[in-house]
């Protein structure tokens, strides 16, 4: 990466991390398991995360549950429609390796073959704490990036 480009990316990600707006593509296990993340017990809003209702407002696309061949077309279109500094988080084992649908004829096996995935959160279903740890890792990565840029 050219020096200035890295500095710009560090600044953009630095701002993104404090107010991540999530577009959720929750189906199958995601919807039932990931609601506590939003509700008052785990409350993701204390980190500035809110769920937005369309990809054009969102920065982070969370995909949980298996994707069929029909639905992955929509996922790719949704991913393309998101404005640029964007992050994709694959939750649960289904998007990572196909999960328990590894030998089903209708589901796709690896999400990363179709869209670039930045964070994998294993678990079938994934725990809410795992989601926060993933966001924590994103913050960690950005902090390291900023340090590296400021040191230069």
């Amino acid at each position: 990466m050219v020096e200035t480009e890295k500095k710009v990316m560090a600044r953009k990600l630095g701002r993104l991390v404090r107010a991540v707006w999530i577009f959720n593509w929750f189906n199958s296990c995601g919807c039932t398991e990931l609601l506590p993340v939003v509700s008052s017990r785990y409350d993701m809003e204390r980190f500035g995360l809110i769920i937005v209702d369309n990809p054009k407002h969102a920065d982070c696309l969370i995909i949980t549950g298996y994707q069929t061949i029909k639905s992955i077309k929509r996922v790719v279109r949704i991913y393309n429609q998101m404005p640029d500094p964007k992050v994709v988080m694959a939750l649960g084992s289904c998007p990572i390796t196909g999960g328990m649908y590894w030998d089903s004829y209708n589901t796709i096996k690896r999400l990363s073959d179709y869209i670039p995935v930045h964070m994998y959160v294993p678990g079938c279903p994934p725990r809410p704490e795992a989601v926060f740890q993933a966001v924590g890792l994103l913050v960690e990565h950005v902090r390291k990036l900023k340090e590296e840029v400021s040191r230069k």
């Binding site: 054009k56 077309k73 929509r74 279109r77 393309n80 429609q81 998101m82 404005p83």
Partner: peptide, 13 residues
């Protein structure tokens, strides 16, 4: 000129 400028229609075209 990418997919980005297409109007949002819940993933459909």
């Amino acid at each position: 000129e990418t997919e980005q400028v297409k109007p949002f229609f819940a993933g459909n075209v």
